[in-house]
Simulated assay, not measured.
Amino acid sequence: MQPRISIITPSYNQGKFIRQTIESVLSQDYPNIEYIIVDALSTDETLPIVGEYKDRLTLIAERDSGQTDAINKGLRLATGDIVCWLNSDDYFLPGTLASVGDFFADNPDKLWLTGDCQIVDQAGRPIQQPVRHYKRLLRSLTPALYLGMTNAICQPSTFWRRSVHTQLGFLTESLHYTMDYDWWLRLQQLQPPAILPQPLTAFRIHADSKGGNQYGLQFDEDYQTFARYWAGTPIRWLHRLHNRAITSVYNLVK
């Protein structure tokens, strides 16, 4: 029997993208989904757009203390066997939930899985293909590389059993950039992720996204998050060196 999948979308003033996000969820060829949008009282066209789909999703519209708080609100409301979050500027590819549902139905011992993702620009055009291929290579190797040296997990392409929240609690709300990395490291303490090779989602980078204009602050928080879980000096040195190399590349291409 295919599991029920709950998708959480934290939302604030992404009206230019959220329709594509919603359509990508509701058009999935999968019979058992729960879709929850948690909006922080957007002031653009977001809420009227979401309202067009009110009979097919659950909308929570109220002030929050940030993206992580919004995600946690949705996770606490979720009733699905499998959960994930999909940001309001990203989107699922066709067939994603069928692949995820089949995997968990066939592998009852697996707690979480992650797949590949396309990296796209504001218009949905593929970008940063070398970055995508590099992270895909790392995920084919050891967790010490794709979770220790760096975070090579695609956030929108990652799904887990809701039951793990009984053991692990919810996302760390003091984190603004690396709440996903922190969550992966906590999940890793229970079990390494299953890796799916196919792309499941599109991760969008644009002028207003955190990944597009706040990468310096993101890397600072990234190292602080990493250091809470990895004690060995060699892997700490490797992680810091990797962050410096990536930051240098970003500075060159910006």
Rank of each mutant, 00 (worst) to 15 (best):
1 M>L: 11
1 M>E: 15
4 R>P: 05
10 P>A: 02
10 P>L: 10
13 N>F: 06
19 R>Y: 05
20 Q>T: 07
26 L>V: 04
30 Y>M: 05
32 N>F: 09
36 I>H: 05
38 V>K: 05
40 A>V: 06
41 L>E: 13
42 S>W: 11
46 T>W: 01
47 L>Y: 06
48 P>C: 10
55 D>C: 11
61 A>V: 06
64 D>W: 05
66 G>V: 07
66 G>Y: 08
68 T>K: 07
68 T>H: 10
72 N>V: 10
74 G>E: 02
80 G>Q: 03
80 G>L: 06
86 L>Y: 01
88 S>R: 00
89 D>C: 02
89 D>M: 01
93 L>K: 09
96 T>Y: 05
97 L>T: 08
99 S>K: 15
100 V>R: 01
101 G>Y: 04
101 G>D: 00
102 D>V: 06
103 F>P: 01
105 A>M: 13
105 A>Y: 11
108 P>K: 09
114 T>N: 02
114 T>P: 08
114 T>R: 01
116 D>R: 09
128 Q>V: 08
131 V>Y: 12
131 V>F: 13
134 Y>A: 11
134 Y>W: 12
137 L>K: 08
144 A>R: 14
145 L>G: 02
145 L>E: 00
147 L>C: 12
148 G>R: 02
148 G>E: 01
150 T>F: 03
151 N>I: 07
151 N>L: 08
153 I>C: 15
153 I>E: 02
161 R>A: 07
164 V>L: 13
170 F>P: 00
171 L>D: 01
172 T>Q: 15
176 H>Q: 08
177 Y>P: 00
179 M>R: 11
180 D>S: 03
188 Q>R: 12
190 L>H: 12
192 P>H: 12
195 I>R: 03
196 L>W: 01
196 L>A: 03
197 P>G: 10
197 P>Y: 00
198 Q>L: 04
200 L>Y: 04
208 D>L: 12
209 S>T: 04
210 K>P: 04
213 N>Y: 10
214 Q>I: 01
217 L>M: 14
217 L>K: 11
218 Q>A: 13
219 F>L: 13
221 E>R: 01
223 Y>E: 10
223 Y>V: 09
223 Y>P: 04
224 Q>K: 15
232 G>M: 12
232 G>C: 13
237 W>P: 01
240 R>E: 08
241 L>W: 09
241 L>Y: 09
243 N>Y: 05
244 R>A: 14
248 S>T: 15
252 L>P: 03
254 K>C: 03
